[in-house]
Design a binder for these strands. Structure first.
Lengths: 331, 331
DNA sequence: CTGTTAGCGCTTTCAC
DNA sequence: GTGAAAGCGCTAACAG
C-alpha cells in the first residue's frame, strides 16, 4: 500500500483523453445505468478510469442531479440504552441500500437552521427524524427534500411516519398483571414534552382503566436509570401491586433501589414492568418484563419509505409497527 | 409554519439582482470572513439574502473550495455499551465546531472503496477512525483528505492519532490487586485482531509479571456480556485470586455467572476488574472496579487535531490520553 | 452512437 | 471597491 503523494484526482476529462473519446462518452460509459455507448469505447473508458484510479467528484455530480447519496438521521442524543439496539441496525440497513448517513444531534430548534446552512446536510435525499425537537412542517422547511420520515410522533398528513403501535403491547402487559391479581399500579413516566411519551402514558391509563386497576401514583422521570432509582421509594409508597415504567432503564433503577423486594429476582412486594425490551433485560441482574417491538421490522419500515418512489401527497398513512409483551421474572 | 410549495431555492444571482449588485459582490458580502465590499452594498445584499431566504448551495461551494463541512467517523459498529458514553459526546463536540458528521459503519475493507465512491463521504475534511478495519495508509487512500485521525492503534508517522495510555491505568489496577494479596490472576480478553487490544493485553501481562502475579488462564472473548458469562467457569477453574477483563461488559457477564461468589457485591472467591469505566458500573448490580479515561479529554484531543492547521509531515506525535483505575466493590 | 456546447451555483482572478 | 468572465467537474441537450 504505497503512500503516493496526493495529487489532484483525475477528472473525467483525463479519463476521456486517455481513452481517446469525448467527455460525454466517458460520462455515459461510467454511468451506473446503461447508456448508449459503443462497446469498444466503453471498454477503453472503463480501463482508463481504472488505470487512473478515477473517482467521480460527487459534489459536481450532485450539483447537476441535485441529489447526494445521503440521508440525515436526526436524534436528540444517543445515550439511552435503547439507542444502541437501534442505531447500529439502522446504520447497517441504510448503508446496505447505498446511502450514507449524516447523524445530526439536535436538541432544540434554535440555531439548527444556521447549522444546517453550513453543511451539506441541507441537501440530503431524506431525513429520518427521531428527535422530538420539531414537527413535520418545520423539518420540511429545514431541508431541501420533502422526503421526511417522522418517528417522533409529530408527523402530519404530508409526512411519512413510522410509529410503534404501543397500545397493543401495553394492553398485553397490563392484562398480564391483571391476570396475576394486580389491582393497584404505580406508573413511572418519561419527559412529558415528547409526543410519543404522551401517547404511551395515555395507553397505560386506558389499559389500567379497562382492567379496573387503580393508579396509586404517577411520577415523572426522564427515562434514565438514575431517575428510576430516585423515584422508587415514592412509587411504592402507595403500596401498588405493580410498578410500570415507560423505559427499561428506569425499571432497572427501580429494581436496584428495591432489590430486597425481589429475592432471587422474584417479585415479592410488587411486580415490575419495563418498556423497550432492551437487550440488557437478558442480563441476569435485570430480568425485567418488558414491552417492545422488533427492531428490524421498525428499521425496515423506515428504509422502505426512503426507497419508495415519491408518493403523491395525501396517501401517506403512518406505518404501524406491532409491539408485544415479553414476560420475564420481575412480572 | 406555512407549508409553501417547495420551489427551486433562490441562488446568489437572485440575491445579487435584488440587491442591485453583481454576483461577485454578493458572494463577497455573504462570505463568512470579511472581504472588501462597500458597507452600503453589503447591507443591501444581506437584506436581499434574508428576504429571499437564500441558502448557499454547498455542493457548488464545495466544488470550488474542494471542502465540505463534514467529518467522517468510521466505526466497526456502535453496539458496545462503551460506545454510548463516547459517540454522543463526540457528536456534540464536532457539531459545536460547525462540523457535520457522517457515520460510516465499516467492518471490513471489502467494498468500502466502492461504497465511498457513491457518497460524498469521499470528500470529507477529516476522518476519525475507530474501526480497526484498516491502517492509516489505507484510510488515506480512501479519502480525498490527508487529515486522518487514528484511534484504532494502526497509525503511522504520517497520521495523527489519539491513544489512551492504557498501561498506566492497568498498572494501577494490577497494583491494587497485588496490594490486596492477589497472586494468581485470570485474564479475559477481546478480539485478537485489534491492535488496541493487543497492546492492552501486553500491558496486563507486563503488570502481572512486575508484581509476580501468575496467570492461571487467559481466555478470549469478544467484549460482550455473553462472552464473559460463558467464560466465567473456565476463568475461575484455575482458582485465581482475581479476574481481569478487558471490557466492563465481559466483567458484568462474569459477575452474573458467579454472583454467588459476590455476596452483597463483596468479592469472596476472587476479585473482579473490568475495563472501560462504563457509566453502568454505577448501577447497583454491577459495582465493577474498572479502568478508564476521561471521555471529554479523549474527544477534545480528536477535535483539536481536526481543527489544527495542516501540520507539516513528520511532526505528528500520537496524543496520549491518561487512564486511571477506578476502585469499586468488586475489587 | 458520438462530439460539441451549455450550463448546475458558486468563487475567484483580473482588470477597471 | 466593483464587475466581467473564467472555471470547479460533471451531465444533459442537441446536432451530427
Amino acid at each position: 500500500m504505497a503512500d503516493e503523494p496526493k495529487r489532484t484526482s483525475p477528472t473525467i476529462a483525463d479519463v476521456a483523453e486517455l481513452a481517446g473519446v469525448s467527455r460525454a462518452v466517458a460520462s455515459r460509459a461510467l454511468a451506473p445505468e446503461p447508456r448508449p455507448v459503443g462497446a469498444d469505447k466503453r471498454q477503453r473508458v472503463l480501463k482508463a478510469a481504472a488505470d487512473l484510479g478515477f473517482r467521480p467528484n460527487l459534489l459536481a455530480q450532485g450539483l447537476m442531479s441535485k441529489s447526494v447519496n445521503i440521508v440525515a438521521v436526526i436524534v436528540n442524543h444517543i445515550h439511552d440504552l435503547s439507542d444502541l439496539d437501534l442505531f447500529d441496525l439502522l446504520l447497517d440497513r441504510l448503508q446496505s441500500i447505498g446511502k450514507q448517513v449524516v447523524l445530526l444531534r439536535v436538541g432544540s430548534v434554535d440555531r439548527v437552521d444556521q447549522f444546517l446552512s453550513r453543511g451539506i446536510a441541507y441537501h440530503v435525499d431524506a431525513a429520518l427524524v427521531f428527535s422530538d425537537f420539531a414537527d413535520a412542517a418545520t423539518v420540511r422547511n429545514m431541508f431541501r427534500t420533502d422526503r421526511i420520515v417522522m418517528m417522533n410522533g409529530r408527523h402530519d398528513h404530508l409526512s411519512a411516519a413510522v410509529v410503534p403501535d404501543e397500545a397493543s403491547g401495553i394492553a398485553e402487559a397490563v392484562a398480564d398483571a391483571a391476570l396475576k391479581g394486580v389491582h393497584r399500579a404505580a406508573l413511572l413516566t418519561g419527559r412529558a414534552t415528547s409526543e410519543v411519551e404522551r401517547i404511551r402514558v395515555a395507553a397505560y391509563r386506558r389499559s389500567f382503566a379497562a382492567h379496573g386497576i387503580a393508579v396509586t401514583s404517577e411520577i415523572q422521570g426522564d427515562y434514565s436509570y438514575q431517575s428510576g432509582h430516585a423515584a422508587a421509594a415514592a412509587l411504592i409508597a402507595g403500596e401498588p401491586d405493580a410498578v410500570f415504567c415507560t423505559s427499561d432503564a428506569m425499571a432497572m433503577g427501580v429494581l436496584d433501589a428495591r432489590r430486597a423486594d425481589f429475592p432471587g429476582n422474584r417479585p415479592q412486594r410488587f411486580r415490575l414492568y419495563g418498556f423497550d425490551n432492551l437487550s440488557m433485560t437478558h442480563f441476569d441482574a435485570y430480568p425485567i418484563a418488558s414491552i417492545g417491538y422488533d427492531k428490524a421490522t421498525y428499521v425496515d419500515a423506515m428504509v422502505q419509505l426512503i426507497e419508495a418512489a415519491d408518493t403523491p401527497h395525501g396517501e401517506t398513512e403512518p406505518v404501524s409497527i406491532p409491539t408485544a409483551f415479553f414476560p420475564r421474572a420481575t412480572a
